[in-house]
Amino acid sequence: MFEARLLNGSLWKKIIESIKDVVEDANWECSGSGISLQGMDSSHVALVSLHLKSDAFDPYRCDRNISLGLSSTNLSKILKCSSNDDSVIIRTSEASDNVSFIFESSNSEKVSQFDLKLMNIDSEHLGIPDMEYDSIVKMPSNEFQRICRDLSLLGESVQIACTKDGVQFTSSGSIGSGKISLRPNITAENLDDTVNIELNEAVLLTFALRYLNFFTKATSLAPRVILSFKTEHPLVVEYQIQDIGYLKFYLAPKIEDDDTKQTTTPD
């Protein structure tokens, strides 16, 4: 038996919307510690790592570790049937090949139940181990979203340079080029608006904007985003979901051999 109730049901909606462009079919791992999901996109350039602590749910019951195979598209369809202030209960039993989603309105007057067929997904469980990063940038999440969106008008990839003076985003394409620089700013009135750079070593890396724009769909989940860089290593784009969990995206750097080459799978 597995059951988890989340009071703030709209959170589910936001989470699914932010990951569904990256992972289509994935196994949701449910254990005593909470619910987590790890999945790569099909060209193996990006990885999603989501964890929601068991404390986030009330009640939370998980008799044994189980993994629920679900399609993000279908999940998104079902969750769209919930209202923003509904609470969401996810429930399944061991023998069942369905998982139920129960939406309860805040005044308990309306209860809807949707059953989704479970999929049998055979995949390897892949994750990126923690490591020491050269540079960590903390900034407002909507600012980062804006930068990625604006630069994607110009080119397909963005070059990110972190130095002690700040962080610089550059992109160029057939119509021209663009450059956005941010200086560390710790004096802003609102703590959420600060740009904070922890620098061990300067880095210069290039990433595909297509993926960054997928990631920034998670902006509504958290006011701040944490970007962790390490030379020749994947970038981590991290959103803290209140104090109940996190959503991390990893993105492989583009290997710069030819500026015009746009394939995301390095050969």
Partner: peptide, 30 residues
Amino acid sequence: TLSRTIVSSKAGGLTMFAKRSETCIGCKSV
């Protein structure tokens, strides 16, 4: 159409960084 296998590529950009956690042969839990 409810069963599918997701293949792990050796060519993707993240492959060299990723670490595989084994899953249970019986129930696929990590």
